[in-house]
Design a protein around this nucleic acid. Structure first.
Length: 498
DNA sequence: ATGTCC
């Protein structure tokens, strides 16, 4: 053994490390092929944890608690090998953002492993419009009009609250179909939303009155933080065939919408973190930190959380549907053309904070994804029919001033439960990002137009606060888990503002 | 992420 160790290359970084073995935050991390590192199970861990990073992104793991969080998740009852950290991993509440945790039927369900913004997700619309005709003046007019229709910022109520109050129960139980019936979009949009815009099993009776009251008036609002509506240009096509299937071409105008379940999902997450924390004690589930509060899937409390979570999932899909409708209306107003003549079409809508029943390796698993996106490969039966042969588009936004990607999962993505990263991933905490100067911020934004006038309200969303999206994307594509299809760059962005 | 602390 002594000789074996001596043959290996010794690296002097954060202490003495051997080639292929490093110690990060006190955890022994072992290289397992291209861009994949494993924390072999030890102590109370029931399974290994795995992270997908290259050398640059691996260094960032020294700076936060995300390894502790994935190893903690690996102790939960029913967890299936491995708990996964995506290349955009960073510390969260409970499971890190960029975490995937799959649980067997006899195991537990955790609210903190889904996150506070239940079904936060991304939707991409394409057009037949050419970006070269969109000058700054036109882009300003468009984002101004979008802001007129879509309330943005924390605590805002929807413009359609008269209608959404009436259809609220229908929305919660039936998802996007309910808002389409009320006039927001067309029936065929359902074919281009994960789960067809409805996670079954939702039940409003599992949702607190407080959450319901917050939700009823918030459908059709963007929210704050990293939520955005972005007018983008398809910058490069990386896979011709798949891009053609997705209706994407170089120079095309596209719109990306990133938002979630607003105060509704947040209240549900708050309520059930408390409920599941108490339930864990009652059922004797050993939960290592409050953020991972979990109860048996089969328990009264576990079942109730699933029903409430599904309600928030349906709310968020519907929220993005209404916002899409309003964005298209803004384009119609400004360009004085119909939606049809501009070629508006939903490409896809993906969730990135959700727990769902899926079949993996012949087993029924409750897959918790928090800051991770499902990416089914070509031929997978759970693809929507239009994308059955190609695999569905997985949408990965970068930070505000940088590129976004459309990718497709491959067969090799089976090792991540067909999951990919959900974005660039935060590099600086919001507090640290506040130290970015106005000059640095403006330089990072380049020519991208944005709506927020107050620098201090937006500085923590600076591209400098995020990891390099190119780096993050390359981790999974180099490993063969994803096929990049197209890169989109922002022209103008609407963020939450007061 | 969030009526950014009922």
């Amino acid at each position: 053994m002594f000789l074996f160790v001596n043959f290996r290359k010794i690296r002097d970084r954060k202490g003495v490390n051997f080639h292929g073995v490093e110690v990060i935050q006190g955890y022994t991390v072992v290289k397992d092929g291209i861009n994949k590192w494993c924390i072999p199970k030890f102590g109370k861990m029931r399974v290994d944890a795995v992270i997908y990073v290259n050398d640059t992104l691996k260094e960032l793991l020294h700076e936060d608690q995300s390894l502790r969080q994935i190893t903690n998740a690996a102790t939960l009852p029913g967890v299936v090998k491995p708990v996964i950290g995506m290349p955009d991993i960073h510390e969260g509440f409970g499971l890190p953002i960029g975490g995937v945790m799959a649980i067997e039927e006899k195991g537990v369900i955790s609210a903190g492993a889904v996150g506070y913004d239940i079904n936060c997700g991304v939707r991409l619309l394409r057009t037949n419009l050419e970006a070269e005709y969109f000058n700054k003046e036109l882009l300003y007019k468009l984002i101004e009009r979008i802001e007129y229709y879509v309330p943005t910022g924390i605590g805002k109520k929807g413009r359609h609250k008269g209608i959404t109050r009436l259809i609220f129960d229908d929305v919660v139980h039936n998802g996007v179909e309910a808002v389409i019936k009320a006039g927001f979009g067309k029936k065929s949009d359902l074919n281009f939303i994960e789960e067809g815009g409805k996670l079954s099993g939702a039940d409003i009776s599992a949702v607190s009155k407080e959450a319901q009251e917050r939700g009823e008036e918030q459908l059709g609002t963007l929210g704050g933080g990293n939520h955005f509506i972005e007018i983008q240009q398809v910058d490069s096509i990386l896979d011709e065939k798949l891009a053609e299937r997705f209706g994407l071409f170089k120079g095309q105008i596209a719109v990306m919408i990133h938002t979630g379940s607003r105060g509704f999902g947040h209240q549900i997450a708050t309520d059930y973190t408390k409920i599941l924390w108490e339930a864990a004690k009652k059922y004797g589930v050993d939960v290592p930190e409050k953020g991972l509060a979990a109860a048996p899937i089969d328990s009264k409390e576990g079942k109730a959380y699933y029903k409430a979570m599904a309600a928030a999932v349906n709310f968020a899909f519907s929220n993005r549907q209404i916002i899409m409708f309003d964005v298209i209306k803004a384009f119609e107003d400004v360009l004085k053309k119909s939606s049809e003549s501009m070629g508006f079409q939903l490409v896809y809508d993906v969730a990135h904070n959700i727990a769902k029943w899926e079949e993996h390796g012949g087993k029924k698993l409750l897959v918790h994804r928090k800051g991770a996106t499902r990416a089914l490969p070509a031929g997978h039966p759970q693809n929507p029919s239009f994308y059955k042969e190609s695999g569905h588009p997985a949408l990965i936004p970068g930070s505000m001033g940088t590129g976004s990607y459309v990718v497709v999962g491959t067969e090799k993505a089976a090792e991540t439960f067909y999951s990919v990263n959900h974005g660039a991933g935060r590099r600086l905490s919001r507090n640290k990002a506040k130290k970015i100067t106005k000059e640095e911020f403006e330089k990072a934004m380049g020519d991208v137009i944005y709506n927020v006038r107050s620098f201090k309200d937006i500085v923590d969303e600076s591209p400098l606060a995020y990891k390099d999206v190119e780096e993050v994307i390359s981790v999974l594509s180099e490993r063969g888990i994803t096929t990049p299809v197209a890169r989109l760059i922002p022209l103008a962005v609407v963020k939450g503002a007061d």
